[in-house]
Design a protein around this nucleic acid. Structure first.
Lengths: 166, 166
DNA sequence: CGGCGGATGTTATAATGTTGCAAACATTGA
DNA sequence: TCAATGTTTGCAACATTATAACATCCGCCG
């Protein structure tokens, strides 16, 4: 299998997914929330791809499972997962990706490679501080921040001109 | 140049729109681009609202003009206007707003009030620098940045509890 | 058991965005 | 002026993304 994942670095992807699912289970338990089979499966599918997945891609994957799913099923699962901070929505792609810092309060910045689509979630206190400060300077009460940077990841950047990922 | 700090403050809106249109005309002229009636009208409609407008809202407005427009008409006009930096797309709202710094190279941050929807475009060098630095730290070549902060503007923030804007 | 509430199934539909082709129009150069 | 060319617009159909409304199921608690 062509080691699909890898935001920029090889790693044991199965283990990384398993860890994410284990974290999710404990987070849900702590909140008395039910990580039902559908919800868990959606989360697993999302984690198996480091590229953000669209709702209808998830839908197709569920259909592959032999499951009889319609759009609301997927959107409801996604709503749940977002609510507990287990996945993020990438607004510029209409797609979803697993949260790399589930459980922790954080403002994330996403580095999205326009070539291989691998997406890296970063929690930068420098950026967060700059944003907070800017908002305050305009007497604006910031509640949610979306920061999505599109460009080229190290594996696909022009200086290399080798095989890009994917 | 049009008064940049428009939302959140009273101002002569007609003049502000007129100025934006004049700027647009000169920018297009400089690039040998044609600011056709449809494109200009779309830009005007967008500027007349400080709240971001959706493509289908624009479509309805064009229909009101007695014009016979279909979705591609609007999307093409929007593509054109974005190409020349005259409008920005707000990804989290699927909507468009006039660019407050047309002509200048800039990375913008948007402060979107979830109450009155007024949206302020800010060019913060602090934030830009922090983002650039973070991207570089991951050897990521940043090309486009989307930064959208949702929250409450001064007029709608809870401490006031007066009449919100809009 | 029986009722309650959350989760899922099902159908339909809304909202957003795109493709492809043809007609209209502007610009250029002979 | 006229044809050649390229851009813009009209138009119809379609693709994608997201939600509404209501029925059903299932676990839990009394």
């Amino acid at each position: 299998m062509s080691d699909p994942a890898l935001p920029y670095r090889p790693h044991d992807h199965d283990a990384c997914v398993a860890q994410a699912l284990a974290d999710a289970r404990s987070i849900c338990k702590a909140h008395n929330a039910r990580l039902t089979p559908i919800r868990e499966r959606v989360l697993e599918l999302i984690w198996q791809s480091h590229q953000p997945l669209g709702a209808y891609e998830l839908l197709a994957a569920l259909a592959n499972d032999g499951r009889n799913a319609a759009p609301p099923t997927v959107y409801r699962a996604l709503d749940f997962l977002q609510q507990y901070g287990l996945v993020h929505r990438i607004a510029s792609l209409n797609a979803f990706i697993g949260c790399a810092h589930a459980g922790a309060c954080h403002t994330s910045l996403f580095l999205i490679c326009r070539h291989c689509r691998n997406t890296l979630e970063i929690s930068s206190s420098t950026v967060s501080a700059a944003v907070t400060q800017t908002a305050q300077a305009h007497r604006f009460v910031a509640e949610e921040a979306i920061m999505e940077i599109t460009g080229q990841c190290p594996g696909c950047s022009p200086e290399h001109e080798t095989q890009p990922h994917d």
